[in-house]
Amino acid sequence: MDGDELIERALSTDFEGWDFSVLSGRLTEGDPDWDYETSAAEAVATAEAVLDMGTGGGEFLARLLPAPGRVTATESYPPNVPVARRRLEPLGVEVVATDADRDDVLPFEDARFDLVLNRHESFDAREVARILRPGGVFLTQQVGGGDLSELNAALGGPANPYGDWNLDAAAGLVAEAGLTVTTRREAFPPGRFTDVGAVVLYLRMAPWQIDGWDPAAHRDRLSALHDRMTADGGLAVRHHRFLVVARKPD
């Protein structure tokens, strides 16, 4: 399949939520030396009141259910909210729409949750501390600012605007909010885009990766990248992930 066909197919591919399965086999990612899903499942199994921040379409949270306690999820990207509700409400989860520009305001009373999960969602550490019960746990895996920097370079785009977001920055904010950090891990697992269509589809799903990116206006860059990927067998990249676990003092 030539580059133009790959690009056009990627531009017309339907997807919903944060279901990256449409990229299965076309964007690979090595595993960090921790398992967030297992840690989250173990925590949910003993929690009385759980919040999943930034649930997307509810794909990840649904894998952790059923749960013995009350489960709530937030989502700030409007197209994802009905997707999450269709998936999660039949499982007993309340899905709350939030404002993407106001992560410093969570619409919950103080000390409501004993577990707050956050997988790849922005957060205000002070708000997380406020809604946690004494003894409650905050478990988050974040995408670091160095994620897929090779992709930005290959397309001649600006660097990721969140380049300073890393383990030290996040753990520092969590500690400043009064939580005790118990676990901190960071990894840069290798990955690969197999074709230029996968690149276009990924940038449609995560447009914040390259600020101002427009596939129509930069078609020449995509064509050049297609030629490079054909010659090299894809585009090698590095993912950037980090894990923070923290506890609110009793």
Rank of each mutant, 00 (worst) to 15 (best):
R126Q: 14
A111N: 13
F108K: 06
F138Y: 15
V137W: 00
L139K: 10
D103C: 04
A129P: 08
V116A: 11
F113V: 12
R133W: 01
G136Q: 07
P134R: 08
D101S: 13
R130P: 13
E94S: 14
E94F: 01
V137P: 00
P134N: 05
F113R: 10
L139G: 09
P107N: 07
H120R: 14
V96W: 10
H120K: 10
R119Y: 02
I131F: 12
L115Q: 01
D110S: 12
L106T: 01
L117G: 03
V116S: 03
F123N: 00
L117E: 03
D114C: 04
F123K: 03
L139T: 10
L115I: 11
A125H: 08
L132E: 03
D99N: 15
V137T: 15
E121Y: 06
S122V: 12
T140E: 04
L117V: 09
S122W: 14
D114Q: 05
R130V: 04
D104R: 04
E109S: 12
L132Q: 06
A111V: 07
A125W: 09
L132V: 12
A97T: 01
G135Y: 05
V128I: 15
E109R: 15
D103A: 04
I131N: 06
P107R: 09
L106S: 02
T98G: 02
A97M: 05
D124I: 13
T98K: 06
A125E: 15
H120N: 12
E94N: 04
A111W: 03
A97F: 06
G135V: 03
E109F: 00
D103Y: 14
H120T: 01
G135W: 04
V95E: 09
R126Y: 14
S122E: 14
F138L: 14
R126T: 14
D104M: 03
R130I: 04
R112W: 08
R133K: 15
P107W: 09
D110N: 14
R102D: 07
D99G: 09
R119L: 08
A100P: 01
